[in-house]
Design a protein around this nucleic acid. Structure first.
Length: 518
DNA sequence: GCCGCAATAT
DNA sequence: AATATTGCGG
């Protein structure tokens, strides 16, 4: 791995000294970029053609923390080839050609980001985030201690600045770090269970793949123990609501059965008319179905009865859906309100916005894409059409189970902002947003859906998809511009802030972007 | 009777 | 904390 989580913890002045491989055929542009990067105290290695870049990557692995490679307008294939050379090196693609298809293709092939030239300081400033993400995403499980100590370290070293905005950055980092490409809680447990042969199901793979970036949230880290038994004994089925533990009947269900029904729904009937209904567990799969139904109907036309009909989940009631829809709408409202909050706008965001995801979703409210391509430019009708921001899956795994919380100190105002995917090649959520962020999206073409529909590998970093597959993804994305692109950094979420608070970190994080003033 | 919303119960 | 339920106006 180019840069491990441990490396980061010992990296006192991170991101100073970040080694950047730069490929830009235009010497003038290269000089400009180099100069900007050097101002941020990054170390730049320039090259002017693919060959040179390829050789640099292959011959000196570990020498670079991140690569910024220009897409060759005359020979795209050459550029795309570079994307498959190193799965550990986060590669940011750039181009002065404003082509959505190319951008999508880069992302689909594993680029962590696409930046339209010219590369302003703002666009370059946060490239270190990809290094963090890569480092932690390559770790089996980003452990809290690592994150906490990294943060603590940053606090100790640089706690000189103001609070609010820097804090956003720090919490954002933590959020990024927490993203787990493989899914941490349930999906991992499910996979583990399947390895042990305790059960088998055609859906099991979908489940584990789809949960990847989305099926995690801060909370999940603290419930593993409790969810383990649950998962092993009652593996979650695709689209199948789960009853809460205490309400389950003693009879184990057949994992292959009841694909579209609520497990244990019979309990509802046998318990008598007065018994309080069993709670529906809006697990990621079920939520995804819900979101897909809502998006299929259009947020403005989604009513409980129709959503229920589209979901086709046996045992689910209109009331269940209505209740969920109510929360879903409230969540969106929250996000939209925040979107109007200008506080975030000056923070360059590394995401291509897209959805709604994060289920793994939609768009972080105050999220400003930082891909060099403005959302309005790429998707000019986004907001005008319906007045709604792109749907962002603010829940779904990662976001899943995170409804807006209230009452946590002064950071409250940033809660709920999140994106879906985070530098994850198409696969996702959500995100979930992305989206479902890593992660995911939630529209009918959230990352997970895309992944599932096209049978994408869990990580394009591991496996180059067929041309055909990439084309499909690109086309699908262009056909549904409101859906999230496979990339999106997550902004700080309330859950993160809450966790920070829980860890006793209440001071302002140090400024950790590359352009800290002296 | 369905819908959406808010308050309240579990 | 997450859902369900209830009540009310439309």
């Amino acid at each position: 791995m180019v840069c491990t989580a441990d490396d980061l913890q010992e990296w006192k002045d991170f991101p100073k000294g970040l080694r950047v491989l730069l490929l830009d055929r235009d010497s003038r542009s290269a000089t400009e970029i180099r100069s900007k990067l050097e101002e941020m105290e990054y170390v730049v290695f320039s090259c002017c053609d693919e060959k040179e870049a390829l050789s640099a990557i292959l011959n000196t692995p570990g020498n670079f923390h991140v690569a910024i490679l220009e897409v060759c307008a005359r020979n795209y294939d050459e550029s795309f080839k570079l994307l498959g050379t190193s799965k550990d090196l986060p590669i940011i693609m750039t181009s002065d050609v404003h082509c959505l298809s190319t951008m999508m293709k880069c992302i689909a092939l594993g680029a962590v980001e696409f930046l339209l030239k010219p590369l302003s300081e703002d666009k370059l400033r946060n490239i270190w985030q990809h290094v963090i993400h890569k480092a932690f995403s390559n770790t089996s499980k980003p452990d809290e201690d690592s994150v906490a100590s990294l943060m603590q370290l940053q606090l100790e070293n640089e706690n000189k600045n103001g609070v609010s905005e820097d804090m956003e950055v720090l919490s954002w980092i933590q959020d990024i770090v927490w993203e787990e490409p493989e899914g941490s809680d349930k999906s991992q447990l499910i996979m583990e269970a399947s390895r042990q042969g305790s059960w088998e199901s055609g859906d099991q793979m979908n489940c584990s793949i789809e949960t990847d970036c989305r099926d995690k949230d801060v909370q999940s880290k603290f419930v593993e123990t409790t969810s383990h038994d649950l998962v092993c004994e009652d593996p979650i089925q695709e689209g199948q609501p789960q009853l809460s533990d205490k309400n389950k009947s003693g009879v184990k269900s057949d994992p292959l059965a009841a694909e579209n029904s609520i497990q244990g729904s019979d309990v509802n009937h046998s318990a008598g008319p007065k018994a309080r209904k069993t709670k529906v567990d809006w697990n990621p799969q079920l939520h995804r179905k819900f979101v897909q139904a809502v998006e299929q109907l259009g947020i403005d036309h989604a009513i409980p009865s129709k959503v229920l009909e589209l979901m086709k989940v046996e045992g689910l009631t209109r009331h269940n859906v209505a209740s969920h829809l109510q929360k879903y709408r409230m969540q969106k409202k929250h996000v939209m309100q925040r979107e109007e909050n200008p506080r975030w706008s000056h923070y360059p965001r590394c995401t291509i916005q897209t959805n709604h995801l994060k289920p793994i979703m939609a768009y972080p409210s105050s999220y400003q894409p930082n891909c060099g391509i403005s959302v309005s430019a790429v998707y000019p009708t986004w907001r005008q059409t319906n007045g709604h921001p792109p749907i962002v899956h603010t829940w779904g795994p990662p976001g899943y189970s995170h409804w807006p919380q209230q009452g946590i100190q002064p950071w409250n105002s940033y809660a709920g902002v999140r994106a879906d995917a985070w530098g994850c090649p198409v696969m996702l959520p959500s995100h979930t947003p992305y989206f479902s962020f890593p992660q995911h999206a939630s529209a009918s073409h959230d990352m997970q859906t895309v992944n599932k529909s096209y049978g994408m590998p869990q990580s394009l970093c591991d496996l180059q998809p067929d041309e055909e597959v990439v084309d499909k993804i690109v086309k699908e994305a262009m056909r549904k511009p409101w859906s999230p692109l496979p990339l999106g950094l997550k902004s700080p979420t309330e859950s993160v802030l809450t966790e920070l608070s829980r860890q006793g970190i209440s001071t302002v994080p140090p400024q950790i972007n590359g352009s800290r003033p002296p």
